Simulated scan of single mutants.
Amino acid sequence: MNRHAYTDREREAIYRAIRERRDMRHFLPDPVDEAVLSRLLEAARQAPSVGYMQPWRFVRVRDATLREQIAALVDAERRATAEALDERRDDFLRLKVEGIRDCPELWVVALCGERERYVFGRRTMAEMDLASASCAIQNLWLAARAEGIGVGWVSLFEPDALARLIEAPPGAVPIALLCIGHVEAFYAAPMLEQVGWDSRRHPDELISIDRWPGA
């Protein structure tokens, strides 16, 4: 018996949140309780970060005009992405890829400026700032699922344009738009899997011993 392990019920709750987390696109208009939002932010704040740099910053979008400007950015990138997909263009255009105009909460997640001063763990891999912020988003996402709140991560935007809209300081880089809100139901499986866009990789494709898988 590992004395550091959680109880069976506690472990199952954690693994259930991981299994049932979904990238949501459909939201109800009901507002999310402020206490719940505070818990989600605290979950994000508790995320690990390389060199303890904590590079994540959150902007809660409350202004309707700003939200519409952000939605227009996403619409433009959606069209550009469709053209870049060539033969999958029409399949992509049929997808609902965001819920920006529908969700009650829209948050911008960005990397802070002046990240060059964080060298610990980033000297050879500067992108570890992005990895760290992604951990914060995942923490928030899993906490939201436990709270019964849906989250959708939208990356269809031009970062510099979004940075200008939120008046970010020099060097700050938006990396995500998070649509947050109540949902009618969580998808039984990832939406892109349900529509046949792709499928989850088998474990044999993902892990090997000493050499690259299949080498």
Rank of each mutant, 00 (worst) to 15 (best):
L66D: 05
V32A: 13
A35Q: 12
R25M: 08
L73E: 13
T65A: 13
D63M: 03
T65Y: 01
R22Q: 14
L41K: 09
V61Q: 08
R57M: 14
T65Q: 10
L66T: 10
R45L: 08
I70Q: 03
D63I: 07
Q69S: 07
D63K: 03
M53Q: 11
L73P: 00
L41C: 12
A43Q: 05
I18L: 14
R57E: 14
G51Q: 08
R22C: 15
D30Y: 05
Q46F: 06
E42I: 00
A43G: 11
L73C: 15
P55M: 06
D30H: 11
A35Y: 03
A47S: 10
W56Y: 13
R39A: 11
A72D: 10
R25E: 05
V50T: 12
L66K: 09
V61A: 00
A47E: 09
R22E: 15
E68C: 04
I18T: 01
H26P: 05
R21T: 14
R21L: 03
A35N: 13
G51L: 06
P48N: 07
D63G: 02
R60S: 03
A35F: 05
M24E: 14
D23C: 11
S38K: 12
G51V: 11
R25P: 15
P55D: 09
Q46D: 07
A43S: 12
G51P: 15
F27P: 13
T65P: 00
M53C: 13
L41S: 05
I70R: 05
L40S: 06
I14S: 06
W56T: 04
R19Y: 05
S38F: 01
R22Y: 13
W56H: 04
M53W: 09
P55Q: 04
D30N: 11
A35L: 10
V61C: 07
L73M: 02
A72Y: 02
R39P: 14
A17M: 02
E68P: 00
D63Q: 10
P29N: 00
V59G: 02
M53F: 10
R39W: 02
M24T: 07
L28R: 14
D23S: 15
A64D: 15
I18M: 12
E42C: 07
Q54S: 05
M53H: 08
A64Y: 02
I18C: 09
Q69V: 00
P31E: 05
P29L: 02
I18D: 10
P48E: 10
D33R: 05
Q54F: 03
A43M: 05
R60Q: 09
P31V: 03
F27K: 00
T65M: 07
Q46N: 10
L66M: 10
G51E: 13
P55C: 05
R45E: 04
L40M: 06
D23Q: 07
